[in-house]
Amino acid sequence: MQTPSYIALSRQTALWRQMDVVANNIANMNTPGFKSQDLMFSEYLAPSKGADSAFPDMLSYTYDFGTKRDVGLGPLSQTGNPLDVAINGPGYFEVETDFGRFYTRNGRFMLDADGMMVTGSGHPVLSTDGTPFFIAPNESRITVAKDGTVSTENGNIGRMNIVSFEDEQALLRVQAGLYDAGEQEPEEATGMALEQGMLEGSNVEATAQITKLIQVQRAYEQVQKMIEDESERQGRAIKVLSGAQDV
């Protein structure tokens, strides 16, 4: 495989990864709190092989070096469920898992068999004291205030720990809408308000993502055709040179 094919293959590989990212966005259009992602590209320049000049010709390859998350607020929708809570503004809910504390924007909560407030995956939602919330069997009226204070008809039981991070792009998205903060230390979120009985939807713009998927697919097909044409050109050149040597 010669240089033009290597350059085309670098572009095709990046397009394949971009297609995966766009397809994942589309698959999560209805996932509460999901943040759309986009692949980031750059140009990688390398000198052509065999160039003896002090200023050799530079070959331009496509290099995808990561993804960027759109942290913009998704649409808030009314559900009427008192255990659905949306963060209107910046911040993340803190939850406890078997692997430590993770963070999420998905506020679709429920009560487990012990009356503990948990996520859909069963992870306890944590208070500012680092403890989960328990609702007694005889408590039926659950209220979540704008500042995250959770109370029932028997009084306050704690305040949800809503945190923010200096670099949201560094958060690693894991399963079930959870984020791993890695080495970052969470800080108390400001400039937000909790909305009880509401959920934050995905911020994926369906039309834009479907259009992008079509564009990526077409670009991939064009690069594939270029690779095939280059392969045919090389084949014809080999035949011509072989014929010349036989003569």
Rank of each mutant, 00 (worst) to 15 (best):
Y6Q: 10
Y6P: 01
L9E: 03
T13V: 12
A14S: 12
W16M: 07
Q18V: 01
Q18N: 14
V22Q: 02
I26L: 13
A27H: 03
M29Y: 05
P32V: 04
P32K: 06
K35H: 08
S36D: 05
S36C: 02
F41K: 00
S42R: 15
E43I: 04
L45H: 12
L45Y: 15
P47S: 03
S48A: 14
K49H: 10
A51P: 02
D52G: 11
D52H: 06
M58H: 05
S60G: 00
D64S: 15
V71S: 08
G74W: 04
P75G: 09
S77A: 13
Q78A: 08
T79C: 09
G80A: 11
G80R: 04
I87M: 08
N88K: 03
G89C: 04
G89K: 00
G89F: 01
P90K: 03
F93Y: 12
E96I: 04
T97K: 01
D98H: 01
G100I: 06
R101V: 09
Y103N: 01
T104V: 06
N106A: 15
G107A: 09
R108Q: 14
F109N: 02
F109M: 04
L111G: 02
D112R: 02
G115I: 04
V118N: 00
G120T: 07
V125N: 01
V125W: 05
L126M: 15
S127Q: 14
D129K: 05
G130Q: 08
T131W: 00
P132F: 10
N138E: 15
S140V: 05
I142R: 06
I142N: 08
T143H: 12
T143Q: 11
T143N: 14
V144E: 03
K146T: 13
D147T: 09
V150T: 03
N154W: 09
N154E: 12
N156F: 04
I157N: 02
G158Q: 06
R159T: 15
S164W: 00
A170F: 03
L171E: 08
L171K: 09
L171W: 10
A176R: 12
A176E: 15
L178A: 11
A181M: 05
E183C: 00
E187C: 01
A189H: 05
A189G: 10
T190H: 08
G191K: 02
M192D: 04
L194Q: 11
M198Y: 11
L199Y: 07
G201T: 07
N203E: 06
E205S: 12
A206E: 12
T207Y: 13
A208H: 07
Q209R: 04
Q209V: 11
T211V: 15
K212V: 11
R218P: 07
Y220R: 11
E221M: 14
V223L: 13
E228C: 00
E230H: 15
I238P: 03
I238K: 06
K239M: 10
V240S: 06
G243E: 15
A244V: 14
Q245M: 13
